[in-house]
Amino acid sequence: MAPVNDVKIVIADDDNMTCSVLRLLLREQGFSVLGEARDGEKAVELCLLHRPDIAFLDIDMPRLSGHEAARKLSEQAPDTGIIMVSALPTLENVQKSVEAGAAGFVVKPFNAMKVMDAVGQCLQRGKDMKR
């Protein structure tokens, strides 16, 4: 696995507080947060521009849902691991996330351990896919 400070992340959520908490948590763990988006279209743009290792995508965002953004990223930036974020961990949301290409799912409000677990799984999945 790459050293933590080499792992680049983009965060997309229409809630400012969620973005702030996630950014602080990730930076505290030594990750590099390259940018933040408040809607799905901007999230895709940022990811295509910066090519992060991981994108955290809220499911319910304006202009393009997290699922739609994940599908676009899976096609256009397949090396970016996707972790979906939602306050509604329904079976349908989880299934749609997996179908859209997500490697992880984090439930709001989240705790540091669950976020780090999702990051670790996402990085491991990316490593396994490159073999």
Rank of each mutant, 00 (worst) to 15 (best):
S65H: 05
T18C: 07
P3C: 03
D117W: 01
V115A: 15
D60V: 11
M129S: 10
M129V: 02
K114Y: 00
E99V: 13
Q76K: 10
A77L: 02
D15F: 09
G40K: 06
P89F: 01
G40C: 09
H67Q: 07
V94F: 15
Q121T: 10
D58C: 02
P52H: 00
D60Y: 12
T90M: 02
M113A: 15
N16F: 08
I83A: 05
K96N: 12
I83S: 10
F56A: 02
R51P: 00
I59N: 09
G40T: 02
A55F: 01
A12C: 05
F105R: 11
F56W: 06
L57Y: 03
G120R: 15
I59F: 14
A77M: 09
R23C: 03
R23T: 05
L91Y: 12
C47Y: 05
A43D: 07
K96S: 13
C19L: 11
V106A: 05
Q124G: 04
R63I: 02
R125G: 05
K130R: 13
M116T: 01
L46M: 13
I11S: 01
A70S: 09
L22E: 11
P52A: 04
R63Q: 12
L73I: 03
T80Q: 01
C47W: 06
V119D: 02
L91R: 14
F105T: 06
P78K: 14
E75L: 11
V10W: 01
S65F: 07
A12T: 08
F110R: 11
L46C: 04
T80I: 09
V107C: 06
V33H: 13
Q121D: 10
Q121I: 12
L48M: 14
R71S: 13
S65G: 11
T80W: 00
D39N: 13
C19H: 03
Q121K: 11
R23F: 01
I11M: 00
N16C: 07
G104Y: 11
R131L: 14
V7C: 02
G104S: 12
K114V: 03
P52C: 07
L73N: 08
E28K: 15
P89W: 00
M61H: 03
S86A: 04
S65W: 01
G126H: 04
V98I: 15
C122V: 03
P62G: 10
F31P: 14
P62Y: 00
D15K: 06
I54Y: 04
L25P: 08
N16G: 06
S32I: 01
E75D: 10
E28D: 10
A69R: 00
Q121A: 08
S74N: 09
E41A: 10
F31E: 04
R27F: 00
